[in-house]
Design a protein around this nucleic acid. Structure first.
Lengths: 240, 240
DNA sequence: TGTACATCAGTGAACGCGCGTTCACTGATGTAC
DNA sequence: TGTACATCAGTGAACGCGCGTTCACTGATGTAC
């Protein structure tokens, strides 16, 4: 139990050799996470069971309990990895080519939607109600974002996922700030960031679970729609 | 079985006396739907079980099978009722007071978000992956919306829910058309409607399951954020 | 270097649970004559 | 109006299932002397 906690509190993705490395399985924790993500991708969040994860890792049903306190701890760890994936994808797409902060903002939006379409089950996992993230400072309180996490109180094992989520969203907000500083967008920072985020998040969820459903189809369609939505967001509904 | 199908194919909400009325229970189908919505509201979509629904209706476990072929048929019927509720709420808020089509559009958006916040579980039910709605005609094909449902193929019991959903979304699109005809908004109709919908849908889902989570808090906060988001959408990110 | 010991990631069996669904049935309701 | 019959919405027991989790255990690994 104490060893499991120690392993669980290590930052995921860390590649330093750990004390437990090379034990019986080698790195069962990592193998379980890998199997979990694959299982979610194949059968959806509801299809995720500890037993099947253990099965895929080639290990007994009880083995995962040496690495995760219970099922929700596994889910939280998967969400953490998902957010890290999402953030990496967004950074790559935003910083990959040159351009103004506005260009980057646009690419962030399209990348967000594309990630959702390409990893539908993982994306859904990130926004499961039970992983509800800390409340961001309200748009009325102009200030640094993410300084007051308070949504995972009493569940320290969810905090890692929550912080991974916040880091992702900070990427969007920082880009809005940059665009505003460059005079490329006008308005109140948090309101702009919120609106931008709502637009692409709405498109992503409508594509996955709504009447626009294109799950399984090429990401190309998602790109087209994301371009449209971000264009309308940029220019506004009102005539200019 | 044949009776169950007959009952299930009746338009829900119809108040005409049915042949089955006044039998043993009176109107078990309606009671099951009522219990189902209450259960979803209390325990979430995952907490919805046929057994508990039957329990709450004061009836044996097997009784619901005379009214719904299986669990998914119940879920579909619940979604249909949910969409009807949502549409009624939106109509009320949009047509309640006078105003330009743009005013109505704004009120629709705020009403959408408020419905989600006030009925979180039901709202989530409407956008469950397994109820994925028919694909709307793409924004590239300018034309009448909803003429080609194709997402519930092979599941006729889902069609009712799908059509209830489409009727709801048509409300939004029609309002965009009216605003455009009045010269109050500029751009391509479907792109405008999609962007508007994405904005409020994104806000709604972020409020329910994201870092803005306010479930249980007063709808007032949702109104404030919805006002902000729709304002940004109206004016656009770019300086004017 | 060897030996005794502590650690701990695994095993395998078992627990209790609630689920969806099926089945033969019962008995109230409606109908035909 | 009365009787015989058909209909069908209910019942209650049972099915098989996969789940999360616990438990005493085993045996490989690492450590202290």
């Amino acid at each position: 139990m104490s060893s499991s906690r120690a392993a669980a509190s290590l930052p995921a993705g860390t590649r330093q050799p750990r004390r437990g490395d090379g034990y019986h399985h080698g790195d069962l924790r990592r193998a379980l996470l890998h199997a979990g993500l694959a299982l979610v991708a194949e059968r959806g969040v509801d299809g995720l069971t500890l037993r099947e994860v253990a099965r895929r890792a080639g290990v007994s049903r009880a083995a995962p309990y040496h690495h995760f306190a219970d099922k929700s701890a596994l889910v939280a760890a998967l969400a953490e990895r998902g957010f890290e994936e999402l953030e990496a994808a967004l950074r790559a797409v935003a910083e990959g080519e040159p351009g103004t902060p506005l260009d980057r903002l646009r690419r962030l939006g399209v990348g967000y939607v594309r990630y959702a379409v390409e990893h539908p089950a993982t994306f859904r996992l990130l926004f499961r109600p039970e992983l509800r993230l800390p409340v961001l400072p309200g748009p009325t309180a102009e200030g640094s974002a993410g300084s007051a996490p308070g949504g995972t109180a009493g569940r320290p094992d969810l905090d890692a996922a929550a912080h991974a989520g916040l880091a992702t969203f900070r990427l969007l907000r920082d880009t809005v700030v940059a665009a505003r500083n460059a005079g490329l967008v006008a308005g109140e920072t948090d309101a702009l960031a919120l609106a931008a985020w709502c637009s692409v998040h709405g498109l992503a969820t409508l594509l996955l679970d709504g009447p626009l459903a294109v799950e399984g189809s090429p990401a190309q369609q998602a790109d087209v729609l994301a371009d449209q939505v971000t264009a309308v967001l940029a220019h506004g509904l009102l005539p200019r």
